[in-house]
Amino acid sequence: MDLHAVIESLPRYGEPLLVTIGVTVASAALALVLAFALGLMTGSRHLAVRTPARVFVEFFRGTSVVVQLFWFAFAMPVVLGIQFDYLIVAGVIALGLNYGAYSSEVVRGAIAAVPQGQLEASTALNLTPFQRMRLVVLPQAWPEMIPSLCAFAIMLLKASALVSVIGILDITWLAGLIGKQPGQDRLLHYGVVLVIYFVLAWLIWTGMRALERRAKRGLGVDAKPVKGRLDPAVAAGGVG
């Protein structure tokens, strides 16, 4: 195994790494917007709103993301006449729709978990439905969504490697491409890719943990208990 040849090849990962990061960020942004829209719709009391959203969610959760990638990249231009100028757009849309459908259940569940008393109190204050959602429900539901959304974001990062099947040059495809060349070792290059994905996943986890702590501090909740400090209820003689 020629480790020196692998090290010399590392600069070639620069542009494909930007592709992987770009696909992940763009897909995550689309998935987040879709998750909130579908989460609110599937939690609606109105059947006309809830039914199409539920059909959409179950369709994208129940079909293969690889098939969805091929559909948006190759089948849609033939069947519907919709042609994307760049294949990366098809990849972003497919991944964003797929993970948006999964994440919508996180949003719906977190909103449903807000205590009913909070809604009754906001109604008593004569808040409009939009004000109740913006000022009462979402601030309490958001911190509960973050851990699950973090898991889905990391899964989306790893799923971004699937865009290589529709011809997009990302770090996974490049590792296989370089690894086949004379003097290179495919195993070492895939090892490099593993390290890259691990570092990116760790950055996502760290950022989301910081976001969760900030969101909980906004509610007066300490997301990171201090070791050796009693719970306030216990210190006051109550039950912790």
Rank of each mutant, 00 (worst) to 15 (best):
I196G: 03
L174W: 04
M145G: 04
L40T: 13
P11V: 06
G191S: 12
A37W: 05
E15A: 11
S164A: 08
M145I: 02
R214F: 05
Q116S: 11
L34Q: 06
L34Y: 01
L230S: 10
G22K: 00
G220W: 02
I82H: 02
A35T: 01
G81P: 03
K224H: 14
G109T: 10
I7G: 08
V65L: 12
G167R: 09
L34M: 06
A48C: 10
F74L: 11
A223P: 03
L40S: 05
Q83S: 08
V55R: 09
R132V: 00
A53N: 00
G100D: 00
G179K: 00
A159D: 09
V221K: 09
L3S: 15
M41R: 09
G167D: 00
G81K: 12
A90K: 07
V49A: 15
T206N: 09
S148C: 07
I154W: 10
G179A: 04
W202L: 15
G167T: 02
L219W: 05
V193S: 06
L194P: 02
V199F: 13
L30Q: 07
I7T: 08
L177Y: 14
T24C: 09
G81L: 06
R132I: 06
P139L: 00
V193I: 04
A75H: 13
T123H: 11
L127A: 00
L127H: 03
K216H: 02
G238A: 07
A215N: 07
S104A: 09
F60P: 00
S164K: 01
D185R: 10
D231H: 12
V114L: 01
L69G: 08
P52F: 13
L30D: 13
L34G: 05
L10T: 11
V226N: 08
L174C: 03
K216M: 15
G81A: 10
T24R: 10
V23L: 05
I166C: 04
L69V: 05
E8Y: 14
A236G: 06
V234D: 15
I154M: 02
Y99M: 11
S27C: 01
L97H: 05
R214G: 14
G183V: 10
L203F: 08
G179W: 00
N98I: 13
D222I: 14
R54T: 12
M208T: 03
A75P: 10
V234Y: 15
K158D: 08
R209F: 11
L211N: 14
V67A: 14
L138D: 05
A153K: 06
R50S: 13
M208A: 07
R12H: 13
F74N: 08
M145D: 03
A28M: 15
R217F: 15
G100S: 10
A121S: 11
V192S: 04
L187T: 10
